[in-house]
Amino acid sequence: MIIPAQYYLTISAVLFTLGMVGVLVRRNALVIFMSIELMLNSVNLTFVTFARQLAAIEGQVAVFFVVVIAAVEVVVGLAIIIAIFRTRSTVDIDDVDLLRG
């Protein structure tokens, strides 16, 4: 049987929400980063699903660019986390509150 697109979109929606909960609830900067990756991946699944549904290759090209940007984002973000860890010996984002009023 052919799987309807809604099934894939539902999985994508649930994964996105899980990533969102992770960003909002967790305070470990590394886990927050992984949650962001989770959200990016769920959006990729949406792109691929619609590319298949509309038989348009542009959706898969968009996923290609998302993966490239995600790789750059992870590299820079992890470098920032390491820099924070060097100066403050913590990756708990509640301890990094210089901007708090």
Partner: peptide, 8 residues
């Protein structure tokens, strides 16, 4: 989904 729950 199990992995997604496991991440957070």
């Amino acid at each position: 989904l199990a992995g997604g729950v496991g991440v957070i």
